[in-house]
Simulated scan of single mutants.
Amino acid sequence: MRTDLVSEPGDAARPNEDFAGVGLSACGQGGCVVVLDGVTPPRDGAGCLHSVPWFTARLGGALTELTVSGGDLTLPEILGRAIERTAEAHTGTCDLSHPRTPQATVALARWSAGTVEYLVLSDSALLLRSPDGTVVPVLDDRLARLPRSALATDALVDATVRNKEGGFFTAAADPSVAVRAVTGSVPRHEVRALAALTDGAARWTETFREGDWTALFDVVAKEGARWLVDRVRELETADRVERAFLGRGKAHDDATVVHVEL
């Protein structure tokens, strides 16, 4: 197995709120990839004493450990347990009912000798490449399908669509959200490689339209994860003034790419 991982903050003066991890089982027959994109809290706080990187580190660590060791658990069960474990770490000090309690998107894959399983929650992306080169994107597009009017302000988002039926879901403090994830599995022999990306790196396709998911996978496989992140930074910088592509989005977002050849 060969891996290539890059994760960097959008602003060097701020901590990276993404998490990325690769785990391998002791028997050498399987492993996992975990990618989280922490949700930046509002300036007026989120009812929690802890930072988003604190949250993503603990949730990501729990997911990596449980995904490798919990072969008898489904990925939604693993996500639910990891959320519960993380919530227990600060339920005594923080208001976990706050709509902006620390939370994250999730892209999770686990493979064994016979199967590749996947789980995606919110707008991180997981790409599966078959031996013939076909790339299948696994996406949770509920946020993208919401009308712009539903996303006009943070207060409106929090009150009407964040972690609500008819809106979109993230991994926060409620373990029941795990059943909302996009999940599935494919035979191991049908997957030659996979890539997991936070939306900051997926901007190459989703925001700047430099190429489709297959083209993105091609450049990561050929040029490397670093090339993709560097190219996204170039595109962000070029659009800083006119914001023809970025619109109201961050000038530079945290960006994470993990590429694994199975």
Results as ranks from 00 to 15, higher is better:
136 V>D: 11
46 A>V: 01
16 N>K: 04
148 R>Q: 15
59 L>G: 03
182 V>D: 04
52 V>Q: 01
189 H>A: 03
252 H>M: 11
201 A>S: 11
66 L>E: 06
106 V>Y: 08
195 A>E: 04
217 F>K: 02
245 F>T: 06
135 V>A: 02
224 G>L: 09
241 V>G: 05
179 V>I: 11
199 D>T: 10
161 V>Y: 11
145 R>N: 11
261 E>K: 06
253 D>V: 02
73 L>G: 08
170 T>N: 06
61 G>C: 00
239 D>M: 06
141 D>Y: 07
173 A>T: 09
195 A>N: 02
65 E>A: 15
106 V>P: 04
37 D>L: 02
18 D>I: 04
13 A>T: 15
35 V>C: 04
39 V>I: 08
102 P>K: 08
41 P>E: 12
262 L>P: 01
148 R>M: 14
205 T>K: 07
118 Y>A: 06
135 V>L: 02
152 A>H: 13
139 L>A: 09
25 S>D: 14
115 T>L: 10
192 R>M: 14
256 T>M: 10
139 L>I: 12
189 H>G: 01
109 A>I: 09
72 D>P: 07
237 T>W: 06
257 V>L: 13
211 G>F: 03
79 L>T: 01
4 D>F: 11
157 V>A: 15
191 V>P: 00
157 V>H: 12
45 G>T: 04
134 T>N: 02
112 S>G: 02
31 G>E: 00
37 D>S: 05
229 V>E: 10
109 A>Y: 05
90 H>W: 10
209 R>E: 15
61 G>R: 03
228 L>Q: 10
105 T>C: 15
100 R>D: 14
233 R>F: 09
28 G>M: 03
162 R>G: 00
67 T>D: 00
209 R>G: 12
150 A>M: 14
30 G>R: 02
249 G>D: 14
224 G>C: 06
204 W>S: 01
147 P>K: 13
40 T>D: 08
232 V>C: 08
127 L>P: 01
226 R>N: 06
260 V>Q: 03
160 T>Q: 15
181 A>N: 03
162 R>T: 01
154 D>R: 13
195 A>D: 02
184 G>V: 04
157 V>I: 15
231 R>Y: 01
64 T>M: 14
257 V>W: 14
206 E>N: 12
62 A>K: 06
64 T>C: 12
113 A>D: 01
218 D>Q: 05
107 A>P: 08
79 L>Q: 03
252 H>L: 11
140 D>P: 04
220 V>Y: 10
228 L>C: 08
82 A>P: 02
172 A>R: 10
249 G>A: 15
213 W>A: 00
125 A>N: 00
63 L>K: 05
252 H>A: 01
258 V>W: 07
174 D>I: 00
102 P>D: 04
3 T>K: 08
23 G>D: 11
173 A>C: 11
219 V>E: 02
248 R>Q: 12
176 S>K: 12
155 A>C: 05
259 H>K: 02
46 A>H: 13
74 T>H: 07
46 A>S: 13
211 G>N: 01
78 I>M: 06
134 T>D: 09
68 V>A: 02
144 A>L: 13
147 P>V: 07
159 A>R: 14
